[in-house]
């Protein structure tokens, strides 16, 4: 018996819309990330039930796709491109400098949850690297200052 507005109801609703869609599981799980920031075991159980799949299958899917994160990001979420075009214009150095400025490595979140740093492999801004995103906003010609201020 579901309470309207409960988290379970929301996940169920998110998943239910996607049931008959192509790639529905992935779309639903992406929506869960969009709504709740990350995916928890209980979300997986609900999505599994809605799609009539096992929790194991959902787990397998979640763990395959980088976007389907199971941990929350920091309040400020920085992704720095690690791919070749950005490397050619200082991407590695930018990453190192940003990491040391923030005191966290790639794939880490600051202990206070204020900021997290993540690798991304190409943002399609390869003429204007090094590229990054901050909270989803694209940052071409990125600098440590632009990312951390």
């Amino acid at each position: 018996m579901l309470e309207p507005g409960s988290e379970e109801t929301r996940v169920r609703d998110i998943a239910t819309v996607r049931v008959d869609q192509i790639g529905g599981t992935i779309a639903a799980l992406s929506d869960v990330v969009r709504t709740f920031g990350h995916i928890e075991r209980r979300h997986m159980e609900i999505v599994a039930d809605v799609f009539n799949l096992t929790v194991a299958e959902i787990r397998g899917i979640v763990s395959f796709y980088s976007d389907l994160r199971t941990e929350p990001t920091g309040k400020r979420h920085i992704r720095i491109c690690q791919a070749e075009a950005c490397q050619s214009v200082g991407g590695r150095e930018l990453t190192a400098a940003t990491a040391s400025r923030l005191g966290i490595g790639l794939g880490e979140t600051a202990a206070d949850g204020s900021v997290s740093l993540e690798a991304v492999y190409c943002l399609g801004l390869c003429t204007s690297g090094p590229s990054a995103t901050v909270d989803g906003r694209a940052v071409p010609f990125a600098t440590v200052e632009a990312l951390t201020e």
Partner: peptide, 23 residues
């Protein structure tokens, strides 16, 4: 359909699996 972060899904058979909602 919007992917969920996997370079390999550009390979066509991986892409098909992904569209079928799988790994």
């Amino acid at each position: 359909f919007v992917g969920a972060g996997a370079y390999i899904c550009g390979e066509e058979t991986s892409l098909l699996e992904s569209l079928e909602g799988k790994r």
